[in-house]
Design a protein around this nucleic acid. Structure first.
Lengths: 197, 197
DNA sequence: AGCAGACCTGACCAACCAGTCAAGGTCTCT
DNA sequence: AGAGACCTTGACTGGTTGGTCAGGTCTGCT
């Protein structure tokens, strides 16, 4: 049985933890920082979560579902090129809305995905394999230019997540302007030309 | 005056530090780990470098030059599309040859580039601005399809570095196969179609 | 009101970590 | 060979950090 206070505090803690973990990485984050952002005392964090590790795990558990949702949205009945473009748009929208999640994920994979290995090797791989098979059918049906489906998926990830993950670099180069400005149009053009049968 | 021993040990230390920093991030790395990889004692590291920070700085100082070299190689006299494709190929080759450097850089930018801000805002920005202007001239000359030059550069970075930075993820999805397999051909096609005037 | 259980915290601990230091070993040059 | 600079390290220190605990406060229910 979870109380009102539990719900509120767990949410505050996970939100603060996402802030700090995504900005500093797992080892770089300290409980004191998270406590500061959450506005709670350090022992209080540990009343709600067994350990720093447990907070991180809770975030990652939620993350992969959210992260994969756009890919699940591919409609086998739809037009191949249109479906891929729509997927790309959803993914870019996620980078815009959830940059912290994107960076948390990037941090994790960058360090070899030690705490995410099972899920990537499991759910994610399965979904990607299915999507690749679907893309191959679309190509065979002439709805899509023939490209390697795995590299196509990787390129969508790379291009969309880059705007969240390398935000700091892009901002410095573009004098602090919104890194995403013009990204939609550019990526639209890119995939339109790549995939036109 | 630097001795033979100094050269050898500095090199060993920086190589070990690159191993550890690129895999764990700055705060995640410990001097003991670096010492272990380098095969030296911890106080000995600090005989050659003033601090952990100094090792990291030494790596980053070297890094940016190497990293920007491919972009400097754009030849204003050459054909626009061919030059961009050649740049992409050089950049992909760097991801293949120097994945640790790529990850070191990614770690740094992901965390807001706190120790790299000046250089990114300075040298890098200048070079990118110049390259963007060059790309605009190529477009005006009809050698390149009209695309936003900044997004073009970002997309080259995103696509090539992705293979080094997200190596762990790609390996898991592709059952441990070489992540780069087929990348050349795929990216070649992608940019060929995007940039054809 | 009063009670049981949920919630919260100051003070503390042990492990870890960057960095110091004094003492001893090794290399180089004459 | 021997002096002197260069190199190396075990043992240590002070500060940080994840985590504990005993005891206090608050909340919701009867």
């Amino acid at each position: 049985m979870t109380t009102r206070i539990q719900r509120r505090n767990r949410r505050k803690i996970l939100d603060a933890a996402l802030d700090v973990f995504s900005a500093q990485g797992f080892r770089g984050a300290t409980l004191d920082q998270i406590a500061g952002v959450a506005g709670l005392s350090k022992p209080n964090l540990l009343y709600y979560f067994d350990s720093k590790e447990a907070m991180h795990r809770a975030l990652l558990d939620d993350l992969l579902d959210v992260w994969l949702e756009p890919l699940r949205g591919l409609n086998p009945e739809g037009n191949g090129k249109a479906e891929i473009l729509a997927y790309m748009r959803r993914k870019l929208q996620m980078s815009r809305e959830f940059p912290r999640e994107s960076r948390l994920f990037a941090n994790e994979v960058l360090q070899g995905a030690p705490r995410l290995g099972d899920q990537i090797g499991g759910d994610l791989k399965k979904l990607v394999d299915e999507s690749a098979a679907l893309i191959r059918r679309w190509i065979a049906a002439g709805q899509l230019a023939p490209v390697d489906p795995y590299h196509l998926i990787f390129s969508i990830w790379a291009l969309t997540q880059h705007y969240a993950d390398f935000d700091a670099q892009i901002r410095m180069i573009r004098d602090g302007a919104d890194p995403m400005e013009g990204a939609d149009a550019y990526l639209e053009t890119l995939f339109e030309r790549l995939l036109k049968p």
